[in-house]
Design a protein around this nucleic acid. Structure first.
Length: 281
DNA sequence: CCCAAGTCCTGGTTGC
DNA sequence: TGCAACCAGGACTTGG
């Protein structure tokens, strides 16, 4: 699942190669995966656009584009959903296999041809091209969970009086952007907090612990280049390393690595949730 | 058949 | 009583 660390891994790789490249052709489009924009708009807007900057907010990639003669930037916004992959190739090579949803060709001065492909088995991913700013839905997101400007006091204010389970709170992108199911379970294990606790019932000291672990665990995810428990690969097709580091996700029925108790499983916010009933309170 | 899980949407409940 | 905020759960997608 591409969550914040996986998307950040991809962003860094794209940021190292795409700026300065110009879109020359849109060779494949999956209309079902377009949001608030049509295939025709994509075909018309992208070619001749030059990549200026590759940004990210939560799980969204925001690729800023410039257009000759126009002061206003446009943006290509990409969400990888559950199984999305972005791969970069030289002009000739293309990864064989199905699920190719979008294929873009670019040219970069003093570099050569590039192909950018968006693969997605489940089509939960989406792509959007817009003028003036990134996709409007980004305005609904909270600060970036890793690099955004927020602190424990912000969390204390956001959890106030909320009865929603703590894990559901972490998954709600309006509070913090970027945490998904895997990192939510891992963060809660490290923080020693039960995913079932009503968020508003946390003590100040517990929220402070949570704030530390959110940044620390996501930072580890980035350092290890993401978690490849299922489909995630980077722009060269290589897996990350965080899956070796998991303490609870996917370990239901196994023993807690801190206290030895058998890990339990629950459904929270419709998502499978694994936790230690002893040391997560 | 169920499960995995991103986001979006709907409808019901809560509480001011 | 009215209304907004909140919260739970379903839809969507494909492969294991």
């Amino acid at each position: 699942m591409p969550e914040l660390p996986e998307v950040e891994t991809i962003r860094r790789q794209l940021a190292a190669v795409l700026p300065g490249a110009v879109f020359v052709a849109v060779e494949q489009v999956e209309p079902e995966m377009l949001r608030d924009c049509t295939a025709v708009e994509l075909q018309q807007k992208l070619p001749t656009s030059r990549v200026e900057e590759v940004g990210r907010l939560g799980k969204y990639l925001t690729i800023r584009l410039s257009n000759r003669g126009l002061a206003e930037s446009s943006y290509l916004t990409v969400h990888l959903g559950m199984t999305g992959q972005l791969l970069v190739h030289g002009s000739q090579t293309l990864t064989p296999g199905p699920h190719l949803r979008f294929l873009f060709r670019l040219e970069k001065e003093n570099y050569g041809s590039l192909a950018l492909e968006f693969r997605d088995i489940r089509k939960f991913g989406c792509l959007h091209v817009s003028d003036g700013g990134p996709a409007p839905r980004l305005a609904q997101l909270g600060p970036d969970a890793l690099y955004g400007e927020w602190d424990a006091d912000y969390l204390k204010q956001r959890v106030r009086l909320r009865k929603t389970p703590l894990k559901a709170f972490l998954l709600d992108q309006r509070h913090l952007a970027g945490i998904g199911n895997i990192y939510a379970d891992e963060i809660l294990w490290w923080a020693g907090l039960s995913p079932l606790r009503p968020a508003g019932g946390l003590q100040p000291v517990e929220i402070e612990r949570l704030a530390v672990e959110i940044r620390r665990v996501l930072g580890e995810g980035v350092r290890l280049l993401g978690c490849s428990i299922s489909d995630f690969v980077d722009t060269a097709g290589n897996p990350g390393g965080f899956q070796e580091w998991l303490r609870v996700y996917g370990r239901y029925g196994e023993k807690c690595l801190r206290c030895g108790e058998v890990l339990e499983r629950a459904k929270v916010a419709g998502r499978g949730t694994t936790y230690c009933p002893i040391c997560q309170t």
